[in-house]
Each structure stands twice: as structure tokens, then as C-alpha cells.
């Protein structure tokens, strides 16, 4: 296959970016998308040019590092698939492909196609956990979880933290990411004691980091490589509303004033 790539190049966060065009001959359909970029990078290095910087690691769709917007769709055209698992057989000879970084204010571009997604870590840090110290745990089977709830919790918990939801959202909102973590714990008995505080704190941090609001476009769900449902956003909205009128909220306000 012969392809024309338009790739976003940006020296650093403050530099102005631009598209650069590369022609790729002999693309094999068994290649993954990133392997195709590897081939390009090898070529660029040998020509003495800087290769295209992009995030990637496990290349099996689970680490969440890869983060390309391909023809306007985060992770590209194949449903429920990360960029690293997208293969060139999804494209055809002569295609023109636009490759851009994940775009959102909360994800500033670091270089070329690499963006800073540390905001996600800060959100988890704010409350995406169950406060149990090592050694405190009771016998595992003393906590029963109905299969249905465990399955739903797992549906939410499989989020890989790639940020495609934010990249796809016209508002750059992180609602699906936060909702996935909130719902994962909301469906489990272990998550109940901190349920209200968790949703309040995580949403607050999400806002601090400059993500947009939810307009119920559902683009996040469509772009999510793990196909996490927006029903979890609905659950988070409800939990947040309840929590906003709870003792936990009063306590948070008191602590902030203090």
C-alpha cells in the first residue's frame, strides 16, 4: 500500500505546531499502525531528521500509553481498539491519513504527538482508591459481591486511562474517565464507606485540572477503546447530586474554610 501521512509536528509545549506530510510506500497490511510509524521513524533517523515522538508501550491495548487521533477519531477508525492494536488492513492503498495528538486544554502537547496526561493521576490521587492499608484486609470471602455487581464494576474498572474520552469530547471533558473509577467502586461493597467523599473529591479535582463540562454528546463512549458506557456518567451524576446534600459535603466545605 502507498499512503500519505499528515503528521502533527510540534517542538515543545510552547512552540507552534504544524502538519508535515510524509509518503509511505510499501505499507504491509499486517503491520500495526504504530509499526508503520516505526518504519517511518527509522527512515527519518537514517535521513538525519528527528523522528516523530509518540507515546506507546505495551502494544497490546492495555497500558493506555498510545494516544493518536487518526482522521479526527482518537485511536482511529476501528471500534473498541487502541492505536497499537489498529492494523493497516483497515486502510486502503492511496489513503490520506491525518495524525494528530489528543487535544484538550488539560492535555498540553509535550512534543509532536505526546501529550501530558498527568491530570488523570491527580484525579486518582484525589480519591480514586479505597483507603485500606496493607494488612488491614479481612478474609477475602467474607466480603460477598453479587456476580452482576462484580461484572458491572469490572465493566467500569477496565478503563486504561488513555484519555481518548477527553480527546473525543468536543468539550474536552473527563467525565467518562472519572465516572468509570467512581462507578467501579460504587458497585462494590468495599467502596461504600467513602462513596460520597470520593465522588466529591474526584469531580472537584477534575474541574481544577481544566476539563470541560459534559454535554451528553456520547462521543467519549464511542471513542473509548474499552467501550465503557456513558451510563456510568449517569450514575456519577446521581451520586454527586446525593453527595452534594450530604454531611460529607458540609465537612469538605468546613475543611476548606479551615
Amino acid at each position: 500500500m502507498k499512503l500519505t501521512l499528515h503528521i502533527w509536528r510540534q517542538k515543545n509545549t510552547n512552540a507552534k505546531g504544524h502538519f508535515e506530510t510524509y509518503i509511505m510506500d510499501n505499507v504491509i497490511e499486517d503491520m500495526s499502525f504504530l509499526e508503520m510509524l516505526d518504519v517511518l521513524n527509522e527512515r527519518l533517523i537514517l535521513e538525519g531528521k528527528e523522528p516523530v515522538a509518540f507515546d506507546h508501550d505495551c502494544r497490546e491495548g492495555i497500558c493506555g500509553a498510545c494516544s493518536l487521533t487518526i482522521n479526527g477519531i482518537p485511536h482511529g477508525p476501528e471500534k473498541g481498539t487502541t492505536t497499537c492494536q489498529l492494523h493497516m488492513r483497515k486502510f486502503k492503498d492511496g489513503d490520506e491519513i491525518w495524525i494528530e495528538p489528543f487535544r484538550a486544554r488539560a492535555f498540553p502537547v509535550i512534543k509532536d504527538l505526546i501529550v501530558d496526561r498527568s491530570a488523570f493521576d491527580r484525579i486518582i490521587q484525589a480519591g480514586g482508591f479505597i483507603s485500606v492499608n496493607t494488612g488491614q484486609a479481612p478474609e477475602a470471602n467474607s466480603i460477598l459481591v453479587p456476580k452482576k455487581n462484580a461484572d458491572t464494576a469490572m465493566d467500569a474498572a477496565q478503563c486504561i486511562g488513555c484519555g481518548a474520552c477527553v480527546a473525543a469530547c468536543p468539550n474536552g471533558a473527563a467525565m467518562l474517565f472519572v465516572a468509570a473509577k467512581v462507578s467501579h467502586f460504587a458497585y462494590l461493597p468495599q467502596g461504600q464507606p467513602e462513596r460520597k467523599l470520593r465522588v466529591l473529591k474526584m469531580v472537584e479535582q477534575m474541574q481544577k485540572d481544566g476539563f470541560g463540562n459534559c454535554s451528553n454528546y456520547y462521543e467519549c463512549e464511542a471513542a473509548c477503546p474499552k467501550q465503557i458506557s456513558v451510563k456510568f456518567i449517569a450514575l456519577m451524576n446521581r451520586d454527586y447530586l446525593k453527595a452534594s446534600f450530604s454531611d460529607e459535603k458540609s465537612e469538605l466545605i468546613r475543611n476548606q474554610l479551615a
Binding site: H6, F19, T69, N71, G72, I73, W98, E100, R103, A104, R105, A106, A168, C169, P170, N171, G172, A173, G210, F211, G212, N213, S215, N216, Y217, Y218, E219, E221, A222, A223
Partner: peptide, 28 residues
């Protein structure tokens, strides 16, 4: 909300393909 949303997405994609967002939702 609209002003916040515009601020949260300062740079747009050169090419944008919508997957699920209906025209009605994008023009509210």
C-alpha cells in the same frame, strides 16, 4: 457552560469525524 467548554478545547482537530454526537446535540 459554553464558555468553559470552549476554553477547555482551545485547539481543534484539523480533521474531525464525529462518531455518535448528533447534529442536534452539537448545535444546542
Amino acid at each position: 457552560l459554553k464558555f468553559e467548554n470552549l476554553a477547555a478545547k482551545p485547539s481543534k482537530y484539523a480533521v474531525k469525524n464525529y462518531l455518535k454526537a448528533k447534529l442536534s446535540s452539537r448545535t444546542m
